[in-house]
Design a protein around this nucleic acid. Structure first.
Lengths: 175, 175
DNA sequence: GTCTATAATTTGATAGAC
DNA sequence: GTCTATCAAATTATAGAC
């Protein structure tokens, strides 16, 4: 992994734990074994780092999902796959969704970070609409909004109450 | 309003916009017309302020709701009332739920702030279980978890995409 | 690419006067 | 209750050497 990717990975952990203000160039630098001035070589400003972090997170998240139609064709329920991906992020990483946290803080984020965060949600809503349409083509817009909100909220509350079982309880009715 | 309450109100706005790290004693002091050293007279540490903020927010939130049985008796659907209270917080204050944001940041919060945040969710889940039981006494625990998650998530995503209509879309199936 | 050095600002917190 | 004065630490960022 390149230094640049190491920095982004370190930043991801921090942001997913405590939000945008929970990482500093000095901390990241120390974790990857360089000096904070060198971080500015890769990312001119903190906003640049934050924006690239959200962008890569989004791209990786969508790539891991794959196309709804392809999932369906291999006998899987796309919505189930979607739920499982959120569940894994919570249980394995033991952390919030990066863009969930950033989304909640949106009013205080630099413009370019805000834009990338918004992009995450737009792409997820599109994906969910297509996925729902494959199951039952009625009210897909509402269903997509409902599914996404429920999963983000379930992650958040699970973290808050310190109980992963809560996530399964909250999402038990998702087809 | 006392200086202490003015400080808490100013802090609430900051936290609901950008999280726990988005307020400082100096900023709060300036907003209410005193010096930062004087803020320490009311709240010895930042964690003390944060904890009292979450506690008052919770108490106020529960008081505004009232008892589910009482709502039912006056011809209202308690769940509808509950949804409306979240909706108002988003549309009128144009801000996230205080404890929603704190909950997402929980791993990086001082212990006493974390505890008060947890209390908010525990009380809300209790309230929702009672409320759901009045409508249909089956699966009330799942229903409570589902309702709370959906509302917190819908607030979060609405903020992120900058569209209040999203909230209504996501929550349209809540009875 | 990485460093040293440093600037300018902000932060939480305390001591002690009034 | 509120102030001045101050501290130690952390923050984002830049200039310039190697």
């Amino acid at each position: 992994m390149s230094k640049k990717q190491e920095l982004l990975k370190a930043a991801e952990d921090k942001v997913r734990s405590g939000g945008y203000s929970n990482f500093s160039f000095r901390e990241l630098a120390k974790e990857v074994g360089i000096k904070s001035a060198s971080v500015h070589y890769y990312f001119p400003t903190k906003a640049d780092l934050g924006a690239e972090l959200a962008r890569q997170y989004t791209d990786n998240f969508m790539n891991l999902l794959g196309a709804p139609a392809k999932l369906k064709k291999t006998g899987k329920n796309p919505i189930k796959v979607y739920v499982t991906q959120f569940r894994r992020a919570l249980l394995e990483d033991k952390k919030m969704c990066l863009c969930g946290l950033l989304g909640a803080e949106t009013d205080c984020l630099p413009e370019k970070v805000k834009d990338e965060t918004k992009r995450f949600f737009k792409l997820n809503l599109e994906w969910l609409q297509v996925a729902h349409k494959l199951n039952d083509p009625i009210d897909v817009e509402q269903k997509a909004a409902n599914t996404l909100s429920l999963l983000e909220g379930a992650m958040m509350v699970s973290k808050a109450v310190g109980d992963n079982h809560f996530f399964d309880q909250a999402t038990s009715w998702l087809e």
